[in-house]
């Protein structure tokens, strides 16, 4: 009985930490894909770049891990700005802008790390530093640190998205014509949105790298699908229609998605199979509306291409 409770607690606490950390990434995904209606694939590069930057700054430059984490966020913001620039100023489609960035960033990440990975095990991370003050166990510490970053991001974004600039940004994804019609620069909104989103994604990358004690150039592969899965779960459960519920849906969706993954691993699933499982999960979620339409005998429009 005690064993089972331990396992349950462990699953819950792991999911809690991961839900908070990856919730930041899901918010980044939500901001571009849903709020801005800008399908930004940069995250496949900016997520490992967050980890690479934080690790390189901690190991090679011997920065304080908190400063290194801040550095990772700034690098992520820059990546987002470049994606936004390619789209708004060079007029390349959002999808292709993100693909170009994601491919290009792979090489940049190898350069940042001077190799394909950096182990962090002998170096203090934000978790170690927080542990010196808080003195919690490993899992409690992970939740506390991720929770602190999540809370900070939650408060900042809730405030920002209700300001005049934030409002114009939220309207951009819904009705660009109207936003320009009331005198707001939609290009600027895309730039700001991509910058914030990729900053959040790089933050997740740096936290994950520091928690797991290493960073790897391939840790971004497929991250977009996990973000999508979390966003779908969050949207289904919270039906977000305002800023606060939207942010909570991102954390809640990540928590549940991560719990499913943790349970799957516990049940003996190979970590290598997880991406297929995630893809199939997303595919099922995406085709539910189609199946509902077909069973009701409704007309189904041709598939969208973009």
């Amino acid at each position: 009985m005690g064993d089972k409770l331990d396992i349950l607690l462990n699953i819950l606490s792991v999911s809690c930490y991961e839900g908070l950390a990856y919730g930041l990434l899901t918010i980044g995904f939500f901001l571009t894909f849903r709020v801005l209606d800008f399908p930004d694939l940069t995250m496949e590069g900016s997520f490992p770049m967050g980890g690479a930057t934080a690790a390189a700054l901690i190991v090679y430059a011997e920065w304080n891990p908190f400063l290194a984490t801040l550095g990772a966020v700034i690098i992520g913001v820059l990546a987002g700005l470049i994606t936004g620039f390619i789209n708004t100023k060079l007029k390349v489609t959002a999808l292709l802008s993100g693909i170009l960035m994601m491919v290009g960033l792979y090489s940049v990440n190898l350069r940042i790390m001077s190799g394909s990975n950096i182990p962090l095990l002998r170096h203090d991370t934000v978790f170690d530093l927080a542990g010196q003050v808080l003195g919690l166990g490993k899992m409690g510490l992970a939740i506390a640190v991720a929770g602190a970053f999540a809370l900070l991001a939650f408060l900042l974004l809730t405030w920002f998205l209700h300001t005049e600039i934030g409002l114009a940004l939220r309207a951009s994804g819904d009705n660009e014509q109207m936003v320009r019609g009331v005198g707001a620069d939609t290009d600027k909104n895309i730039l700001i949105g991509c910058a914030i989103a990729n900053g959040m994604i790089a933050l997740t990358g740096s936290l994950v790298a520091q928690y797991q004690g290493f960073t790897d150039v391939s840790m971004g592969i497929g991250i977009i699908v996990t973000a999508l899965a979390s966003a779908i779960i969050g949207t289904a459960l919270f039906r977000p229609n305002r800023v606060i519920t939207m942010l909570l849906a991102c954390f809640g969706g990540s928590f549940i998605y991560r719990m499913i993954i943790t349970v799957a691993l516990r049940l003996g699933m190979s970590p290598g199979d997880l991406r297929l499982i995630t893809s199939v999960m997303v595919l099922i979620a995406l085709t539910i509306p189609l199946i509902q339409k077909l069973t009701r005998g409704e007309w189904v429009p041709p598939a969208p291409r973009l």
């Binding site: 300001t163 005049e164 409002l167 114009a168 309207a171 005198g183 707001a184």
Partner: peptide
């Protein structure tokens, strides 16, 4: 509020 800011600089203040 979006329309109210027409012709003005949009700021980081509550809309």
């Amino acid at each position: 509020s979006l329309a109210f800011s027409r012709g003005k600089r949009r700021k980081l203040i509550h809309a």
